[in-house]
Every structure is written in structure tokens, then in C-alpha cells.
Design a protein around this nucleic acid. Sequence first.
DNA 1: ACAGCCGTAGCAAGCGCTTTCTACGAGGTA
DNA 2: TACCTCGTAGAAAGCGCTTGCTACGGCTGT
Lengths: 354, 354
Amino acid sequence: MTVTLADVAARARVSPATVSRVLNGNYPVAASTRDRVLRAVDELDYVLNGPASSLAAATSDLVGILVNDIADPFFGIMAGAAQGEIGGPGDGSGRGGGEKLAVVCNTGGSPERELTYLTLLQRQRAAAVVLTGGALEDPAHQAAMAAKLAKLADAGTRIVFCGRPPLPDTDAVVAALAFDNRGGGRRLTEHLLELGHRRIGYVAGPLERTTTRHRLEGHREAMKAAGLYADEESLTVHGPYDRRSGYDATLELLRRAPEVTAVVAANDTVALGAGAAVREHGLRIPEDVSVAGFDDLPFSVDAVPALTTVRLPLFEAGARAGRLAMGKETPPPGGIATIEAELMVRGSTAPPRG
Amino acid sequence: MTVTLADVAARARVSPATVSRVLNGNYPVAASTRDRVLRAVDELDYVLNGPASSLAAATSDLVGILVNDIADPFFGIMAGAAQGEIGGPGDGSGRGGGEKLAVVCNTGGSPERELTYLTLLQRQRAAAVVLTGGALEDPAHQAAMAAKLAKLADAGTRIVFCGRPPLPDTDAVVAALAFDNRGGGRRLTEHLLELGHRRIGYVAGPLERTTTRHRLEGHREAMKAAGLYADEESLTVHGPYDRRSGYDATLELLRRAPEVTAVVAANDTVALGAGAAVREHGLRIPEDVSVAGFDDLPFSVDAVPALTTVRLPLFEAGARAGRLAMGKETPPPGGIATIEAELMVRGSTAPPRG
DNA sequence: ACAGCCGTAGCAAGCGCTTTCTACGAGGTA
DNA sequence: TACCTCGTAGAAAGCGCTTGCTACGGCTGT
């Protein structure tokens, strides 16, 4: 049937132990012996039995990357960057060193699925887990997550957050890279205020998500600082982080408050839908209404007009998370790093009419 | 340390064998016994040891989904849909039935990484593998892939292609869902020809990819049918499937052949870059130059003007691939199904000037 | 020249689960 | 009443690998 370690050992005329040591390279083996083993491996086309290996060694080379929405480039970029750092030495090398299996798991934003995936990864004795994107703020879920992560960490799994605020009271997490969503949101709204806008609509993300809350808080901080704290509620509409939601919410917003001169969207994808709604309403961007997004996804610069947004270094953050997960980089002091967000002013924002 | 099956067995006052059978639900166990076991599992917070289980059972619940570029929604949508069908029953259910670990692996379009991932999945004795997107046409790589897939299939792994043409001489693949890229490409160009365009630039994808070739062949079929077979080469520029490449290639194209009245892009992302280049060149879309894409990604309808493109049912195809991988759906006759592409005419194409 | 080392390789005991085969009591049947 | 069958549970043999420990030459040091 399938080729086993013993078969390779027989062919190379050594013991199984020696073959194992050659393959793992964690024990001195004479060069001539090594060659003989390697040749046998090639000739027999041997592939290590992962489960057996993981069982005996009590560790596996699986690394899980959890994302909220795999169809969203926001997550795809981070996941791809992380995977690049984890999946073996560069490319091609093949046999040899730290060939980890970096895999991404799509929770679809569902807390149950998030926990399910963590359990599944725990089953597999994953070497590390990277959690990307904002967290749900439901206390029950947070407690369940903390417990699950503690158990994972206990079993030796390295846990890294990427674009997610640190969990309180947990040292299970090796490192947390948090985006400065609040600061970015504040600067974006400040930019709009400087242009002269006073009535600013906000198409927010789903409730109970840290990302949503932080961006919104940044916006309100800026508004408050400008003495514009009234009407906050009526100019905010919540919805999922997708194009459709941006469209619907903006239509609703324009109906409810026709006097708005600017619309800030929860992210670039939402901003795209918002822009469509604005135009469909017979208004021009940015002459009649300014539109702004968040994230600076690749398509945002090609929107017409180009989207003013807040740039998040997604690739860099993902890569760093990958390195942290692999233990290739020392964690930031306190295990927490804040990643700056940069305002990108482009054509979709301009001073209001009049 | 960690809780084992034996611990649960002791607590439930049964043998390990019984606990295993309760957990797998593949053997009659008295209801009262089952309850006792389940309670013990809960109380001890037991999590099955995946490697041990896979080793003993000679199968695992890992399902791999290979994608060329995880940051591209084209793949994200398919992968997400497939993962949705594979990752357990709906959501939440938790304990019990077919909880598979559906994971996506990002090859970045590199043939080496593609093979590496397959080896890694083979190591893990994956239950199934879904390969998405076009294949590389390099004969050496194709042979290597065929050999690897045969070995995987031999070991009991179900293999499904999604958006990839079937491999010749291989029955390792359970089912191949191929997009009708050629037909879609042909209809798109026919649409342009009907509008009156005669000089049509083509910003193609990377060479040696089936997707690239098929779309281009469809385009040329249409051109040829209209008696426009000259200049094919000079009006075609190749590049990667990304925004930047579309931008650069289009600039090059406009320089080389200023008389073109339409630009067809390899896909929507490339079309976005192409559109930017056209505008930067001082030309209007669609008045001066028509622009068209392929795939109909979510953002395409929000482009300004809305992008004429070819719709591929990515979500449906991904979901179907997931079901086929799980054996929840019977493969199409011959293991091959062609998935239709639908022309979506929108604002970015119009008759040429004059 | 002999003890002690170092460099290599083998032995064998698991790792935690699955599964075949066996065991045993309770009903059903003759 | 004796025999079978059915339903349920346990015993135990691995699954293929890793690794602590032991073994065995050839060198070095005195």
C-alpha cells in the first residue's frame, strides 16, 4: 500500500529511527547515511504520515489563520501576507526545514464558526493561530473565546492577533497588532471638518464589532471637538461591511437627512455602495456630497473620483503577524503594538457647496 | 495534562472503545450510556486528538482548497462558498456530524507552492482537495501535478476542480467544473463588434494560464469571424491579473496603437487599472474608449461608468465544488461540467466615435 | 596500553485513538 | 427448559512515527 518509514529504512539499510532523524534534521547523522536515506526517500516517493508524526511528537505543523470574510480583500491581503511568512522558506525549497501548512479559515463573521474553527484547530494541535480583523463585543462570546484561547495556548499553540485589539486579562496571546481605527477615524472626520462640512452622515459597520465601534468613536471625537455633538444618532446608520449595505444605508440616510454634505463609510467596500447611492440620488461626488472610506483597498484609488480613505498597512501587518506566529520575530513590549492609520486625501472629498 | 479518551472513559465508567463510538456515532450505543459519556466529555472539556484519530482511522477531516491569489475576490468568493458547504452542517450545531476542517491554501500562482501544498495535504491525509482557478500550461508542471493528484486519489483523497479545465488522461479527479471562458470571451468581443468597434485592444493575463488562453481565444474567434484577424498580436499585451498590470499594459497599448476604440481586459481587476490608464491618457469612457472586464466581481457594478463584463457564477460554482468534495452531490456525467458565462452589458461600453 | 569520550545508530516504548473480535445478558423460539 | 439471536460493551492489537536510552567502534589523553 502506501510507503512507510519502515520501507524507507529497509531500502536504505538503516533503522526507522535514523530515517526519522534524517527527515527531521534534529540529530547528527553521518553524511553518507543521510544520502542513502534521502535517495531511498526519493526512489520510493515517500511522504511522511502527518498524523502519525504529530501524534508521536505531540505537535503539528498546521498554522490556522482566521478571517471574517474571505471574499473581502481586507482579509485576503492580511491572510496572504501571513501565509507567505509561514509557508516554508520562500518558495521551491521543498524538502527540509520548517515547512508549515498555513491555512486560512473563513468564519463569515459568525461567532459560532469562530469557536468551531478554534476547536478544530485545537483538535489538530495547531502550532499557531492568527486571528485577523475586529472582534465581536458580546461578553459571552468574549469569555468563551478567552477560555478557548487559554486552552489552546496551554497546549502549546502560539496565538497572534492581527488587526484586533488585545483581550483583557489574557496572556494566552503572544502578540496583538491593533490598528489605530479610532485615530484614523478621527483624522478622516477632521479632514472633512476642515473642508467645511458640518452635516456628516456615517454609514457604520455592524454593531458590537470592535472595528465598527472604534472607527465610529474616532468620528464622534472629531465631531465633538468641533462642537457638533448633536444629531449624532440620526446621522448614523449601521449595516454589514458590504457594498449592498452601503448602498441601502446611504439611500436611507439621504432620505432621512437630505442636508448632509458628506458621507463617511465604514470601509471602502461600503463606500463604493454609498457612492452608487449618492449618484443614483442625482447628486455628484464630490461637488454635492463628499464620500470617504476606510482601509485603502487596491480598488479605491481607481474609483471615480478616487476615494479619500484611511490607509491601513494590511500587508505589512499580516506579514508581521505571520512572523510572530512562527516565532521569527520578538513580540512588541507588553505584547501589544498599535499600527498607525494614514489619511489618504483624494478626489472624492471636497468643500461643500456654498 | 491534556484530557484523553481514557480520562473520559474513566469518568463515564465505560471503556475507551465506547467513548470513541459515542463520539463517532458509527456504532449502536445505549442511550443512557451515550448520555453519560457526553456528560463526561462536557465536564472534562474534552477535545479529540485529531492526529491520533487520523492515524488510527487512516483518514482525516481536513479538506484543502487551493487558490491562486487569496487577496483576489475571484478566489475568495469561490473559496468561501466551498468552505460554507464543507465546514459542518450549517452553523452552530457544534458537536456531532461531519465537522470537516475546510482550509484554504494560497499558492500565489506559483507552481512550486501548488505542489508543495498538495504534498502537505497529502501528509495530512486530507479527505478532499479543491483546486480553483486556471492551471498553468507548462507540460512539466502538468505532469507533476497529474502524478501528485494520482497519488492523492490513491490515498483516498477526493479531488475536485473548480473553474479549471479537466486534466487529460486522469481519472483521479472526481469532478471538474470548467468555466466557459472561451464562450464568454467570444460573446464579449461580439458585443463590442456589434457596437461598431474594429480596433480592439486586449490586455491579457499571464501567459501559459488556461484562463488567459481561453479568454483570448474567444476574443480572437470573434475577431476572426468578423474578418478582423490582422494585428492580433500587436493589440495584445500580457501581464499579471492585477490592477497595476492593467494600468501599465493599457498605457503601453494606447501608446502603441492610439487608434483603438475599445480595451478588453483579462478580468475586472485589470479593467479597473485599464480604466484609470484610459482616463489618465485624457480619454473618456465610454465616449472615447470602451472598456470591458471579465468575472463581474461585486465592485464592477459600482465602477464609474459601471463595467461591462462577463458574469461567472463564482459562488454557485464554489458551493457545488464543495458539495462534490464532500460527496454530497453526484458528479456530472463524465466528471466534467461546463459553467456558462453571461454577458453583462453596462455603461463602460458604447459605440465608437464617428 | 587502558580508560574515557565522542560520534552514530539501533531498540523499544509509547503517543491517543479506532476497530475487530469476543463476551455476556436478555428475549424470543421450539 | 435449552438454544439462538440480538443488542451492547470490553479487550487488545495495532496505526506510523518520535525519542530516551543503550550500544558500539574508533580516538584521544595520560
